[in-house]
């Protein structure tokens, strides 16, 4: 006779499970509004047009380049997981140094990536040294 409350509890549990999958961190929000259109909701990229971020070896050792690419875009070939990507990427001039640092930590530590956090001072330093129109990234 107490079957209905438990049935209801089961349903609520299920709805909660489906609803709770979104990542609401600051990094996830910046990613969603500035990056996900091209690089995909899960960093999967799109064929040879937009490189993947999930599992991308490039993210591991290019902290400084990443900061400049996010701010200024890139229009040189990038080699990611052994594959060449040649489509230009637009810059994100409206993102602050802090937002870029948060974003870098997000993409380096999401979708199976586990490259650790980059100190803000390192990102700030890299941004101060970016060439005005970034040709970096090779």
């Amino acid at each position: 006779m107490f079957a209905w409350p438990i049935l209801l509890a089961g349903l609520i549990f299920l709805i909660y499970q489906f609803g709770a999958k979104g990542d609401n961190s600051a990094g996830a929000k910046i990613y969603k509004s500035h990056c996900a259109n091209c690089h995909g909701d899960s960093g999967e990229g799109l064929r040879s047009l937009y490189p993947p971020l999930a599992g991308a070896d490039y993210l591991k050792d290019h902290e400084a380049d990443l900061a400049c690419i996010i701010r200024n875009g890139v229009d040189v070939d990038l080699i990611i997981n052994g594959k060449t990507y040649n489509q230009p990427m637009p810059g994100n001039q409206l993102l602050s140094d802090q937002e870029i640092a948060i974003l870098i930590d997000h993409i380096r530590n999401s979708w199976g990536n586990d490259y650790g956090n980059v100190p803000f001072s390192k990102v700030k330093n890299a941004l101060d040294l970016c060439a005005p129109t970034s040709k970096s990234g090779k």
């Binding site: 079957a3 438990i6 049935l7 089961g10 349903l11 549990f13």
Partner: peptide
């Protein structure tokens, strides 16, 4: 019994 009902409700959902 509670566990059983929970499983049944999940299956129904």
């Amino acid at each position: 019994e509670k566990i059983f009902l929970l499983v049944v409700s999940l299956l129904l959902a």
